[in-house]
Amino acid sequence: MSDTTEKGFDVKGEQGFIYSRLDDIINWVRANSIWPQPMGLACCAIELMAVGGSRFDIGRFGMEVMRFSPRQSDCMIVSGTVTYKMAGAVKRIYDQMAAPKWVIAMGACASSGGMFRSYSTLQGVDKIIPVDVYVAGCPTRPEALLDALVRLQGKIRTEHSTKELFSRSRYC
């Protein structure tokens, strides 16, 4: 075992046990391995790609595993304009994601319809799926999306995960 690990967690001193709350452990696991589902619909998706690239690098926060299958992902990042024609597909992909799942509305269009106040555009993706974090910007800066992801981690750390595991109130 290396030095750094021994400093962080002393096996001998704790006799091989960690004492914590179950909520904290579950939330710690969930928050640090978010697998995003890139729901790229417009130009915000380009910024999302930049976030995944080496310059901004969401790998620093344990979220670099972008999954294009909804069944393998935790967090849908709706990046772009949601038209009424696309809304059904967005909703269906959200339904296919396994709980627990979170949604980030990235940019003005996904949050409120943005500048597309017109006949074809859904006025905010929160009309069809529950959104956890809204990000401003048109398109969003990569830093802003990183901030949103960190805020989402903060939100996950405050959740009552154990209670929800048994009550099933939130995810049904």
Binding site: A87, G88, A89, R117
Partner: peptide
Amino acid sequence: PLAGLPAPLPDSF
């Protein structure tokens, strides 16, 4: 009108 008119949603919805 630019704002659009009420309409039924797509069948996929």
